[in-house]
Amino acid sequence: MFEVVAFYLFAALTIVMFTITVMTQQALYALTAMAAGMIFISAFFFILGADFLGAIQIIVYTGAVMSLYAFGMMFFDTTRDVVEKRNNPRFVVVLGGLAAVLIVLIVLAPIVTTDLNAHYPIDVSVGNSQAIGMVLFTKYLVPFEVAAVMLLVAMISGIVLAGKKMDKSLTLMADEEIALMHASSHHTPEEGGH
């Protein structure tokens, strides 16, 4: 009973928050509404017994992704209203709903009649985090390592693109300027580096 109440409460809250994110003209409202929506999403994971996933949702989304967006928004002019070109809003709403329903139908159509059996059945004798660890490090070890490499690449690219020297960026300079900078730093080593 409490499960049902919690589901409907968090479903309503999540839908309202994400609607604010999509519809508002203020970038800061969108950011805060989405952070709230992400936390409400984690409630569904806890209801579904996926405790580890819920914790990861809070840590990664509201901890890492949202703070990254907040830092990124410091670079942009967020105080002015976001101007959107809107030629036919009702058309967009109808098309969005139709596309979502269509995608669900396409994904579900081949498997809705067949009786699926579990590859890695849920083990009730151990906790969720322990079972997740066992499946992740035995059956999904290679994707896990690939995801780790991908996160490393993303980190390096983030550092290169939005590096520490904000006044001069290697990605914005022409090749001659970079060569000039290197040459000057080599000729006068006592000036550079400190």
């Binding site: 999540t14 994400f18 999509v22 967006y69 959107e84 809107r86 967009v92 098309l95 969005g96 596309a99």
Partner: peptide, 19 residues
């Protein structure tokens, strides 16, 4: 499905890349 529809509406109506 509802949340996905909201996201799709956002993708279609937003012109600001951050949004």
């Amino acid at each position: 499905t509802l949340l996905f529809a909201i996201g799709l509406i956002g993708v279609m109506r937003r012109k600001n890349l951050l949004m």
